[in-house]
Design a protein around this nucleic acid. Structure first.
Lengths: 208, 208
DNA sequence: CACGGTTTTTGACCTATATCAAACGCATTT
DNA sequence: AAATGCGTTTGATATAGGTCAAAAACCGTG
């Protein structure tokens, strides 16, 4: 337990817009988000960006960097945030002695793989409405798991970032929000979202 | 070394079309492909499918299953294949005693995460030609790494499976192949592909 | 509270890809 | 050799979402 504490003793704060790490930087730690909100993104040479995820408190990021000892994406704070640094060789050392921790680490990495599968599904075979519905339901579920309202929350990201994540243009995201609002599925005021009809929103995902 | 051998002693063969595992089945092992070719796919309730990867010899599959102790996708042999089963608790046990193996396992899982990031990039922000070019170059590179020709190879999957993987319809895949052929980038005869102009093919990926 | 910059919304129009349909090729069976 | 059946190619047409543009809302700052 003491060793586990030692693992997670280094905390750092980030202002909105600051980078936790950048693609190419050497790898030495994973990061647990204590509070705030991050996005991870991959940048193409030609300037195109792909947001690969939005992370909230309790989630671990940086696992992409293990395989080549360098980060393969950027992590940017979407609001003032605090993270806790987990030096990876200490984590590995400790997980050799504590099988439960070892399994836990493997599960976390596996969960990331499954999450990515879900995004592939979304990007590869869903239409705009389904993508946005899936996105909102996913946020809702994660807020709920953290003790916040599953029905009313604040978006920390821009339309452009949502669009990048969902493989859509920002205008399409905006239009789809408006359309959902017209249909009484939700009420949007820019960044404030309130889900009015979860069931109907759910019925969007997974049905043509 | 003996223990490592014991890990990988159980081998099994699969005929084309047979399932290595199915979504929902309990998890107990990872699988190393010895020879042959597999695809992994996620099925939606409504029947839509998303191919999440094509695996070739030397690659490890099944890591999605760790997080919930159950497989989250199907793995299907695309040709007669042989795999080697790696019981996961033995692997964990051994990797506790052999730090190099532990790190290796983490790298493999991390590589899967990075691979998925690449697919997100592809699905989220590339056009049909870029997607197909990226796909072919990726296959080429992997064949090359296994000692096969990087320029001429046999596709083990149908147009429909390529399409599902790339987020395109099979007709679009077929048309894009024809278009590449017309432009002298490659020569296609159904499943046989020969890359005639790698550089120009490369120039497709990552540039508008 | 006015200002400048960013983000969002909405409209009009365009295009890449999907859809539908038919023909073709190739392998396997009868 | 004909028949069957899957996978592929190609054509004609439709459409979801992209693009371009302008206005509106919002936000931080002096």
């Amino acid at each position: 337990m003491q060793r586990l504490d030692a693992l997670t003793s280094l905390k750092r704060t980030f202002k909105r817009g600051e980078y936790l790490y950048r693609s190419g930087e050497p790898f030495h730690a994973l990061y647990a988000i204590r509070n705030g909100f991050f996005k991870t993104q991959v940048l193409h040479e030609d300037g195109r960006e792909q947001v690969t995820g939005f992370q909230m408190p309790g989630e671990i990021i940086g696992m992409d960097a293990i395989c080549a000892d360098a980060h393969t994406c950027d992590a940017v704070a979407l609001e003032d945030s605090e993270i806790c640094e987990i030096p990876f060789n200490l984590l590995e050392e400790l997980s050799r002695d504590v099988p439960v921790l070892q399994r836990h680490l493997h599960k976390i990495m596996s969960r990331e793989i499954v999450r990515d599968q879900g995004i592939m599904m979304l990007l590869g075979s869903m239409r705009a409405e389904e993508r946005l519905a899936a996105f909102l339901l996913n946020l809702s579920q994660r807020f709920s798991a953290r003790g916040y309202s599953p029905n009313a929350f604040l978006l920390r990201m821009t339309r452009q970032e949502i669009g990048s994540y969902l493989g859509l243009k920002l205008e399409t995201v905006s239009r789809t929000f408006s359309q959902f609002q017209e249909n009484g599925l939700l009420s949007v005021r820019v960044r404030e979202v309130e889900i009015m009809d979860v069931l109907r929103l759910r019925s969007f995902v997974g049905h043509i």
